[in-house]
């Protein structure tokens, strides 16, 4: 029944069987949480609705993908994983909400985490917005500074001589090490956070931009010169485009470092944001809220990385053998 996948990207068996199994396992998870009595006091309605939403979404996707073979392939490819997710949720719910084997407050069940998300959604939404604002202001500032210094270092000998040792030396320091100083210098926790994230992203971008520019083949410059290009053209239309792939590497690294710096700087001293929320919830031993916040981080950060990767794939479409992710 299972035909070997001929799609390189979606190589899992293209079988209806696994798809129905995945739907079945989500139905089991729903039925289990609906009909097995609770031991812990939990509002399971949001969790049940979420599972139902998942089941309905799957069925709709299956109907819609009747004519879109790529989407159908992707759906089938994910089926085994979704099947496992359904079983995992069932097991987790049985071990926590339904039996209390996993102790609260440290190990709440899925229903409790979803319930707390539903209850606290305004606070979580505002916290997420605060975190995203801090993240983007910091990352954009750091990337802009990184691009500028990277170009200066990569292109001009004098700048390279004076600035590069500084970048090398300060670039190895984890940004959060500056926190005690940043707190003193900056008026509030937002600007402190922006400063730390800027520092975190600045150097990795600067370093990769400079590396990308200086790796430009000499022939490219000679080609451009014999075609009538001046210095500005060489920089703007030869060196910088040549550096774009490594700029993206730099920005990816910067993004990762910024997530880290964001959460740490919010956990220390901030009064808003997901990092603050985790720390605050921990103070009340509200671990369900800690997990809720962690899940939101996972989703938000994944979306940011997916966005970055989509932009990268579009900009670098001229490169050989770029494999489309997602």
């Amino acid at each position: 029944m299972a035909v070997a996948g001929h799609n390189i990207l979606y190589w899992k068996p293209r079988s209806k069987g696994w798809f129905f199994a995945s739907v079945a396992s989500l139905i089991i998870a729903w039925a289990e949480t609906t009909f097995v009595p609770n031991v812990q006091v939990v509002n399971t309605i949001p969790y049940r609705l979420l599972l139902l939403g998942g089941i309905v979404t799957l069925v709709i996707l299956w109907i819609v993908s009747g004519k879109l073979s790529q989407l159908r392939d992707k759906l089938y490819h994910q089926s085994q994983f979704l099947f496992a997710v359904g079983l995992f949720l069932t097991g987790w719910d049985l071990l926590s909400t339904k039996s209390g084997i996993l102790r609260i407050p440290f190990f709440p069940g899925p229903a409790q985490i979803i319930a707390v998300m539903a209850r606290e959604y305004t606070v979580l939404l505002i916290s997420t917005a605060y975190s995203m604002r801090l993240f983007f202001v910091g990352l954009v500032t750091g990337t802009a500074l990184g691009l500028t210094t990277g170009i200066l270092i990569g292109w001009y000998r004098q700048w390279n001589y004076w600035l590069f040792p500084l970048v090398k030396l300060t670039g190895v320091i984890p940004a959060v090490a500056w926190m005690p100083i940043a707190i003193v210098i900056f008026p509030n926790s937002f600007t402190t956070g922006v400063f730390l994230i800027t520092i975190a992203s600045w150097f990795s971008v600067a370093f990769m931009v400079a590396a990308g520019i200086s790796s430009t083949p000499k022939t490219y410059y000679e080609v451009a010169k014999t075609l009538g290009a001046n210095e500005t053209y060489l920089l703007v239309h030869v060196a910088i485009p040549n550096a774009v792939p490594s700029i993206f590497t730099g920005v990816s690294t910067a993004t990762g470092l910024s997530f880290l710096t964001l959460v740490i700087s919010e956990m220390v001293g901030a009064k808003a944001g997901l990092g603050w929320y985790i720390n605050w919830a921990k103070g009340w031993s509200a671990y369900d809220k800690v997990y809720a916040s962690i899940i939101i981080m996972a989703i938000a950060f994944s979306l940011i990385l997916a966005l970055l990767s989509a932009v990268r794939n579009h900009v670098l479409r001229w490169q050989r053998g770029i494999v489309k992710t997602s």
């Binding site: 083949p217 022939t219 080609v223 014999t226």
Partner: peptide, 12 residues
């Protein structure tokens, strides 16, 4: 005008 041994087209 100059043509190099490798075409050296700009890949982007």
């Amino acid at each position: 005008g100059y043509v190099f041994q490798q075409a050296a087209l700009f890949p982007w």
